[in-house]
Nucleic acid binder design. Structure first.
Lengths: 239, 239
DNA sequence: ACCTGAACACCGTTCAAGT
DNA sequence: ACCTGAACACCGTTCAAGT
């Protein structure tokens, strides 16, 4: 049967969307989520878009910029506190940190891009601005707040990277948690088998060194940092 | 003139040293020091040794193992405290941290290898053992000490990486410090030019955000961490 | 056992040529 | 202005062949 007049074919063509920076970044993040940062190559992203690698360079200056755009794209998911509350700025800062951790760890090893990068994208800057806002509301001296944003950022990046170590190396087709467990048990056995005379403390503390979960480590470090920052407040707000 | 009998030629041949793991690792570290971690490729190390990349695989399982061997090789330079002194364990821990920082930052971006890696090499394990020894001497509860080694390691790795950002990207033939200054001034100008209504805190604190040196940041973070760890000590030793 | 050349399956980026 | 094919100068790793 011929198509009746005036009725257009359902799909005019493959109708590929035109290339834009936004589309490229979204595609790159999809690859990141599925296979990790190492899999995000210019060639791979181009292939995913049905084109060649050279086509990307009209919208992105190179791989480095693409990585930074991916990071800022992902940072948009971080929910910021509505308004600083001076009476509970420490809790708010911890909540924001937990939120950043949640978003980072849900996007493969994106934290590797953040580590050692001065934030310039709008979303990452908004996060930094929110952190500063909370500390200012809490009465943290500006100089301390300036240093603390850096330190907090280092901690969050490092923690997210640490969290994704076992994940990243999981071979395809293997259960992630099983892989995690196996690897962990190997480390434990290795530590336990070390010569006690050369490593008296490591061998004596095998349980303590391998026992803590990622959550334990995060809470421990975050608590110490926030308490440390708060210790610089001269006149704590009367709650 | 012919060579007199019984006198061997000065140099019998190019006399290349036979390939060993030790030699490969030393060569790789030399490339790291001169050109950074990215320049350390299997092919480049092989070339430096006057052979092909395939030859390395008889002594090293691959690039990943070579990187870890490099890290442990470098960790041998870290001077460990002679003996824990319970009355000044916090100072000793800070001194050790500063020593680790010194060694890491003197070897390009080697800290990138350490980040997110469970230490298994003898030298890195010795460093961890020393940290644990200091904390145990200070009366830090074992569980806390176990978490603290992790947190401290994360901080040291992140700090060293942060320190080498500007260095690593310096183009050849350009003065490193000049490059650093230029880049820093650009960041400052960028922050200052941001819209104050969207980023009220960042724009209000440009000086505080760009003012601190790497040393400031290190001392600030380390001080907070050690104080936090010490806060878990139940019965501080009577000094 | 160690070393090698050649090959395989990848990279990021550039550039002249097309539309 | 945007897109493309082809090329350039690299990667890590494997493998059969040599010694």
């Amino acid at each position: 049967m011929p198509t009746p007049p005036g009725r257009k074919p359902r799909k005019a063509a493959p109708a590929r969307q035109p290339l834009t920076q936004e589309l490229i970044v979204r595609t790159a993040v999809r690859v990141l989520d599925a296979e990790g940062l190492e899999a995000v190559t210019m060639r791979r992203v181009a292939q995913e878009l049905g084109t060649g690698p050279a086509s990307l360079y009209a919208h992105v200056s190179g791989k480095e910029e693409l990585r930074e755009l991916m990071l800022d794209h992902v940072a948009a998911e971080i929910a910021l506190p509505a308004e600083p509350d001076p009476s509970r700025w420490q809790e708010q800062l911890k909540e924001l940190a937990a939120e950043i951790r949640r978003v980072y760890t849900s996007h493969g090893d994106i934290a590797k891009v953040s580590m050692g990068l001065i934030p310039t994208g709008p979303n990452l800057l908004a996060v930094a601005d929110a952190q500063l806002g909370l500390m200012r509301a809490g009465g943290v001296p500006p100089k301390i707040a300036g240093l603390a944003v850096d330190t907090l950022g280092m901690f969050l990046d490092a923690d997210a990277i640490e969290d994704t170590i076992y994940m990243a190396r999981t071979p395809a087709g293997v259960d992630r948690w099983e892989h995690f467990q196996t690897h962990f048990e190997e480390v434990r056995a290795y530590f336990a088998a070390l010569p006690p005379d050369r490593f008296p403390n490591v061998t004596a503390m095998v349980d303590e060194l391998t026992g803590g979960t990622g959550d334990d480590r995060f809470r421990f470090g975050l608590d110490i940092l926030v308490r440390g920052i708060a210790s610089y407040v001269q006149d704590p707000p009367t709650s």
